[in-house]
């Protein structure tokens, strides 16, 4: 049933594309509720994207071709990542390529193009945002790798689908190392997706912004793609986290019923993650930019501790 697998793969990408803005809308909605504001509609991100797609693009005079193709590259990278991450099934055609290290590399490529595009026009804000993004990135990446290494150590593979399968099949036990790495992963997720302790996604006019500063020169369809890619990135990170720490309920082959079940389960898990994200963002204050390395150093430390504890408690 090869074509069925491909169909499932197609469905997975479609689900990711459609659900990513929905997740963002859900997080914003929860945040508004928690902060006693009247919530924007769940569909607000879609409306934003549609509005932007209907506008005419304006480019700076000195914008190079890199500036114009960057949104497509970044969006493409995120779609590729979404296809690879085992969010619905573990035995889909593309998930064979989902080596965790390759995934980290994909995200790094997207970050590089984002930063290059931000510096391309040469405005002060873009350069500033790009530099800060690189600073956050170079601290977050080793942490992400470390988190993945712990899971790899436990399952003897770096392929994300196999990690998820093995962890789901393993006997239930208390793994302090997984607990530590889960916290580390949550911190990396906050930092990488420009959420509150590191960056504020709602701000546009402050010297503290990171991600928004890089998008200032973009308009219309380019901006729409960038924002969609950002939503996809959050979605992808959430799905990596789910594959590592809550791997139950993934469909293993192309069985349509299992797949439907997996979609429902995924929606439930993501709803919980979104609410948790909103809670963290409401409870914590934005850190000064110079405190961000400290935040990420803590995440790295947690991941390393997880690794060490794992090594200690298995060696005998």
């Amino acid at each position: 049933m090869n074509w069925l697998n491909w169909l499932d793969q197609f469905i997975e990408v479609l689900v990711a594309l459609a659900a990513a803005p929905l997740l963002l809308g859900w997080v914003n909605m929860c945040r508004a509720w928690l902060q006693n504001r009247s919530a924007p509609s769940l569909l607000q991100p879609y409306r934003g994207i549609r509005k932007l797609l209907h506008k005419d693009a304006v480019l700076a005079h000195n914008a190079s071709s890199l500036f114009r193709i960057a949104p497509y590259i970044i969006f493409g990278t995120m779609v590729a990542a979404a296809a690879m991450i085992p969010m619905l099934g573990t035995r889909l055609p593309f998930t064979a390529a989902a080596d965790a290290i390759a995934l980290v590399g994909l995200f790094a490529a997207a970050r590089m193009f984002l930063s290059l595009a931000a510096m391309d026009v040469g405005t002060a804000f873009g350069t500033l945002g790009a530099r800060r993004e690189m600073m956050v990135g170079f601290l977050a990446e080793p942490t992400l790798l470390m988190v993945i290494f712990v899971a790899s150590l436990m399952t003897a593979t770096t392929a994300l689908p196999l990690i998820a399968e093995n962890l789901a099949a393993a006997q239930l036990a208390i793994h302090p190392s997984l607990l530590f790495t889960a916290v580390a992963f949550a911190m990396v997720m906050l930092a990488e997706n420009a959420r509150i302790p590191v960056d504020n996604p709602a701000t546009h006019l402050e010297l503290t912004m990171i991600h928004e500063a890089m998008l200032l020169e973009y308009s219309a369809r380019h901006l729409a793609l960038m924002e969609w890619a950002a939503a996809l990135k959050l979605f992808n990170y959430a799905c990596i986290g789910l594959a590592l720490f809550v791997p139950w309920g993934l469909a293993s082959n192309g069985d349509p019923i299992r797949l439907g079940l997996a979609i429902v389960l995924l929606a439930g898990k993501l709803a919980v993650i979104g609410a948790g994200l909103a809670l963290i963002e409401t409870l914590s204050a934005k850190l000064r930019v110079f405190r961000a390395p400290e935040f990420l150093a803590t995440a790295f430390l947690l991941a390393v501790l997880g690794l060490l504890v794992r090594l200690l408690q298995v060696a005998r």
């Binding site: 006997q171 208390i174 190392s177 607990l179 530590f180 430390l301 501790l305």
Partner: peptide
Amino acid sequence: MNTIPLDLQIVNALAALLLLLSFSMLSQ
């Protein structure tokens, strides 16, 4: 790793948390 009884797992987890607390003290 499947043969460790539950109470030992809990002691191991507590040990790991103890280590974590030491680090949070260092950073406080």
